[in-house]
Simulated assay, not measured.
Amino acid sequence: MNILHISDIHFRREYEACDEGYKGMLAKMQNPLIPLGECLTHLHSQTTLDLVIISGDLTEDGEIDDYRYLKDWLKKALGDTEIIVTLGNHDIKEHFHVGWCQEAASSAPYNRIVKYPEFSVISFDNSSYGYADGIVDQQQFHWLEHALEQEKNQPIILVTHHHLLAQQSAMPKWPGTERFLELLVPYDIRCILNGHTHHTFSDEINGIPYFTVSSMSFVGEDEGDGLVRFEERHGYNLYQLKNGRVTRQTSENFMPGHVLKTLDMSR
């Protein structure tokens, strides 16, 4: 089984015309559906995709119509390939439920269990709009406990947005990391997938393969003294699974060298 993992699309149908600050950086960026389309065209010429996982920040501002457009675009690009998503700190739950899920607005976390014959995917929402580091309450941890116990006889792939290791980014790791990892101990977790940092990273956590994928939009490089150099950069991870185990992981990262802006983020 081939699983494509992408993240941090930060999609908007139109980015606000602006010259200053973060919005000015976005205004200089190409629409992320351009590189995503190129990546999918390349992948479809090389392999068959059985599942696509998107680990949060689907949109830049959580607009209802942006979710609708993005989902329609992905369906056209991917056909019948299943898509599993989680939400990031740029996603607004109420708008996501309306635009993506085509259901009533709800502030409920978007948690899902998707079962396959040889494994299960648990998509765990550890995000909150406007809180860059993520927030999860006890009710969310209770949901995760129940989900893990429900799937205890299956290998499990866990998907979330925020990163779990302090050493992989200048951004703080998710504050719920320790409790999260404690809950995983009794279960057969085959890998943990996430995004958020916009940088590719791989390691193991307590023997569990751990993969952070590049963004599909931009990356920020820390230049010190609060200065961050933003560049267009995109990439994806491709996993091959056999009997629920990751047998191969490939990362593709594209660095066109287009500097968007250098911003003082300490202000």
Rank of each mutant, 00 (worst) to 15 (best):
C191N: 01
T81H: 01
E182M: 01
N253H: 12
D66C: 13
S7Q: 02
N194C: 15
M1L: 15
D203P: 06
S107A: 15
Y210Q: 03
H234W: 15
D125F: 05
W174P: 03
S217V: 06
L74F: 02
L33Q: 07
P209F: 10
V136D: 04
L263K: 09
N2M: 13
E231N: 15
G134I: 11
L43R: 13
D65K: 06
L241T: 09
G235I: 08
Y116G: 11
G134V: 08
G224W: 10
F96E: 00
P256Q: 09
Y110C: 05
N126H: 03
E149T: 06
K76G: 00
G224E: 05
I6M: 10
S128Q: 13
S128W: 03
G99F: 03
E223C: 10
K23C: 01
N237G: 08
Q150W: 14
T59L: 04
L165P: 00
P117I: 10
P117C: 09
G56K: 07
F201E: 10
Y210P: 02
I122T: 05
G195N: 07
R233G: 01
L227I: 06
D19H: 12
L43A: 07
F124K: 09
P186T: 12
E149V: 04
K93C: 07
L227F: 08
F180A: 02
D61P: 00
S169E: 10
D222G: 09
N31I: 04
Q139N: 15
H162M: 04
Y129S: 07
A147Y: 04
L144E: 10
H198L: 08
R68G: 14
P35V: 05
S251I: 04
V219R: 07
L58V: 06
G130M: 12
P256K: 12
M25L: 05
Y239I: 01
H162T: 01
G130K: 11
C101F: 07
T247A: 05
R245K: 08
V159R: 14
K76L: 10
P117F: 09
Q240C: 04
G176S: 09
N153P: 01
I3Y: 04
H42Y: 15
P32S: 03
H258Y: 12
Y15C: 03
F124A: 08
S128I: 01
I192C: 04
P209V: 08
T41G: 05
C18D: 14
F180M: 13
L263C: 08
M25C: 11
